[in-house]
């Protein structure tokens, strides 16, 4: 059959569904082993966070697209959670190989890392369906409009610069991402670099300040946020 925009969009969604069909929406056995190897086991806080952010996501999703669509919000969050655990496991395997360590207590007990990783997974899911809408030009699917980036970081109260820190690792370890999706994540990166990371409450300014202090070049006449 000839490729059409609709067929291409459906194929993207089917590909995501196929990859995540075998993935779990709970930590896998391998992940639990990583959690058990930590100085402080992060399992409970991870499950609690996923549950709490799920409530926020579903509530905001329904507000954005209509209360009648709350079930769709739950489905999207479920897919995002599966991708989050899948990528988390791949990242840990990759870091284990790179650093030759098994104890990832600091990383796995860092709430910002988890929220960033989950946000990235959810952005992939949202964009997959968003791409479908843009390609199919179907009027009854325009409800996704309000969910485009940076919607996800706003509703999860995440700083754009923190999301930026996970995108590259996410792309590196997730082989199923389509070329279109990698381009989308790259666009998110550009948006962050060009404007979102430079908002006054961005953690980037603290990093710049720390960096200048480490270099012994702190200029007191000009605050970092100038």
């Amino acid at each position: 059959l000839p490729q059409t925009p609709v067929r291409a969009a459906m194929s993207t969604i089917q590909q995501l569904m196929a990859v995540l069909k075998s993935a779990s929406d709970k930590p896998t056995e391998k992940l639990i082993l990583y959690f058990n190897d930590c100085t402080v086991n992060p399992m409970e806080s991870i499950l609690k966070r996923v549950k709490e952010l799920g409530c926020t996501f579903k509530e905001k999703f329904a507000e954005a697209v209509g209360q009648g669509c709350s079930e769709i919000g739950s489905q999207r969050y479920g897919l995002g959670t599966r991708l989050y655990y899948r990528v988390m496991e791949s990242i840990l395997k990759s870091e284990e190989k790179r650093l030759s360590i098994h104890n990832f207590s600091k990383l796995l007990n860092n709430g910002i890392f988890h929220t960033s990783l989950l946000a990235c997974a959810l952005e992939v899911v949202i964009a997959t369906y968003g791409i479908s809408r843009n390609t199919s030009q179907s009027n009854n699917m325009t409800m996704e409009t309000d969910l485009s980036f940076p919607w996800i970081i706003n509703i999860l109260d995440l700083k754009a610069f923190d999301l930026y820190k996970v995108i590259e690792s996410f792309i590196k370890v997730e082989p199923s991402l389509t070329r279109e999706m990698i381009k989308h994540l790259e666009c998110c990166e550009h948006q962050i670099m060009e404007s979102l990371a430079w908002r006054s409450d961005s953690p980037l300014f603290d990093l710049i300040k720390q960096s200048k202090e480490q270099d012994g070049q702190t200029d007191h006449s000009e605050p970092a946020n100038c």
Binding site: L107, E168, S169, I171, I182
Partner: peptide, 21 residues
């Protein structure tokens, strides 16, 4: 991923970005 520009330095990973040893 051939068109994607990777910004992490050689030998650097996500642990460093979240201040982990």
């Amino acid at each position: 991923t051939q068109d994607y520009h990777f910004g992490l330095e050689e030998g650097e990973g996500i642990s460093e970005l979240f201040d982990c040893d």
